[in-house]
């Protein structure tokens, strides 16, 4: 697909995530140049390759030294034009490696805080529905301290979906969980992405997890993220040196 050909451009899906940027943190240098098609993309690579940092740049928690990130027609950041869209305005759902649920709020309140539309009652109702969607309805009244690791990430997943995100970002969300729980939650992410039709970028350094989830694979190697592949090529890209 060549973006310069106007005939071809109509076939480009509207919510493609494109990144072309250079970033530095101390001595670490990160160069990203990829277009991630909609679907479930796995950002795969070893620890320290810059995967989490890339998600932070997409989420707007850090600003790149220079470059441009777009989602569909929306420019999230463009350093050449001095443009930076605040994280609040990006409408992304993020599941972090740690749950980051507010310890003084119940699961329901944590999810309700992230619902953007409606009055208090409507937000709580939406939060209930979301908890049901992630199979955690019975946890609504509990605080994070009273939840298991897997339950916390379910609630965090519900919170990430609460703002009706245009894109889900998941940063090794299940790496601290044991295998059976991990597999179940992986299936849940797959179902949610399919049901909501929302594209997702899932960061992992676990090959089996990448293989199980990926529609697309994006390879991260020490500070360089430039290769993307889909379908059979995706599996092959996981094993490329």
């Amino acid at each position: 697909m060549s973006a310069s050909d106007p005939h071809e451009r109509t076939h480009v899906a509207p919510e493609t995530l494109t990144l072309a940027l250079h970033h530095r943190v101390g001595a670490f240098r990160l160069d990203v140049d990829v277009a991630v098609p909609p679907g479930l993309a796995v950002l795969f690579g070893p620890s320290g390759a810059g995967k989490s940092l890339t998600l932070r740049l997409v989420a707007g928690l850090d600003a790149p030294v220079r470059g441009r990130i777009t989602l569909g027609d929306t420019v999230l950041v463009d350093t050449d034009r001095g443009h930076f869209l605040a994280p609040q305005q990006r409408r992304l759902g993020v599941v972090f490696q740690e749950h980051r649920l507010l310890p003084h709020r119940t699961a329901l309140a944590n999810v309700a805080l992230a619902v953007r539309e409606g009055d208090r009652a409507a937000r709580r109702e939406a939060a209930h529905a979301l908890l049901e969607q992630v199979d955690a309805a019975e946890l609504a009244g509990r605080r994070p301290a009273a939840l298991s690791g897997g339950q916390r990430q379910r609630v965090a997943l519900a919170r990430a979906l609460a703002g009706r995100p245009r894109l889900l970002l998941l940063d090794e969300p299940f790496s601290a969980l044991d295998q059976p729980v991990r597999r179940r939650l992986r299936g849940l992410v797959r179902d949610l992405v399919d049901a909501a039709g929302v594209p997702a970028v899932f960061v992992t350094h676990d090959r089996a997890e990448a293989l199980a989830l990926a529609d697309h694979v994006v390879r991260a190697e020490h500070g360089a993220i430039t290769r993307v592949a889909t379908g059979d090529d995706a599996a092959a890209l996981l094993d490329e040196p």
Partner: peptide, 11 residues
């Protein structure tokens, strides 16, 4: 990190 989570959630 809690503030970051709230920020991306739109608060």
């Amino acid at each position: 990190r809690y503030e970051e989570a709230a920020r991306v959630a739109g608060l």
